[in-house]
Design a protein around this nucleic acid. Structure first.
Lengths: 149, 149
DNA sequence: CTACAATAGTTGCATCTGCAATTATCTCAT
DNA sequence: ATGAGATAATTGCAGATGCAACTATTGTAG
């Protein structure tokens, strides 16, 4: 609230932004090189694979991947066309639909993860020792607490 | 390189991603509420204001804001239409063009900064004490060193 | 039971993005 | 000087994004 942004904090913020784009770019590049879909697809597949019965209502999925609803509709469209998931009518609520991950989706998830994981390791994790990783996570947790609005 | 991603590191990575979208969303929301342009415009204006003679070649601008070239062409289009900068022919290299920030651009920069700065403070900086901010920056610097490719 | 508000998902629209191809100009070795 | 290759910026295109409007269904207060 108070307008007192130190040089050091400002620098940290800019570094935060540039580090993010750089790391994402590197990982997306690795995925593209392996002829795999983008990270957004991974997020969807991952969320579904973790969900009970490997399915989620679309609005739950939207929350899980931090995307707007309209976006999820069309993202799910694409994944469905690619055969990685299926829509399924919800019995209890006839407005609703589930996205259910398919066998092909699970295979793709695994395939993407092998590239993704190695990217996380070599671009991100290898720069954090055991102490730092704890602190790093703790700091980010603070920032995303709801108290900030 | 080695595929050994610990639970803790994986969690840190996911937190890194969610924190980024959350913080950006909050700041973009504050800007939109104040009827100001998005962050990408700020980045352009800031880069120009810092540059010698308050102007940059478009490819320099592209690098400064970490955007692809075609993107910069059109981003500059929009800012030019809004009167925040002007294109100027380069004498030495007739292929080239400069983007020069205008007086209106400088005013807009200042106006956006007041909102942006307070966002950085209340969503980000206030969660980092003097020690943490140093370590945080150091870690991110490591990650974006060129050694990783 | 009914009417009003809330919610789920989709769609239209305008904008934004990256990639690849294009045009124009520059550099440099021969 | 000139021709091959690099570089600067733009453009076409396909895809992705957020917002607001829309349809359909559900929940709820009276």
């Amino acid at each position: 609230m108070s307008v007192n942004l130190s040089k050091a904090h400002n620098l940290a913020w800019r570094k935060f932004l540039t580090a993010h784009v750089t790391l994402i770019e590197r990982i997306e590049r690795d995925l593209a090189t392996a002829e795999l879909p983008p990270l957004s697809w991974y997020d969807v597949l991952f969320a579904l694979s973790e969900a009970p019965e490997r399915q989620l209502r679309l609005h739950e999925l939207a929350q899980a991947v931090l995307l707007s609803r309209s976006n999820v509709t069309r993202l799910v469209d694409r994944l469905e066309v690619a055969g990685l998931l299926q829509r399924e009518q919800c019995k209890r609520d006839r407005r609703g639909a589930f996205a259910v991950i398919t066998v092909e989706g699970l295979a793709m998830l695994e395939c993407m993860w092998s590239v993704y994981e190695s990217g996380i390791v070599k671009y991100f994790a290898c720069h954090l020792d055991a102490t730092e990783v704890k602190l790093f996570t703790k700091i980010l947790n603070r920032m995303t607490s709801i108290s900030d609005l």
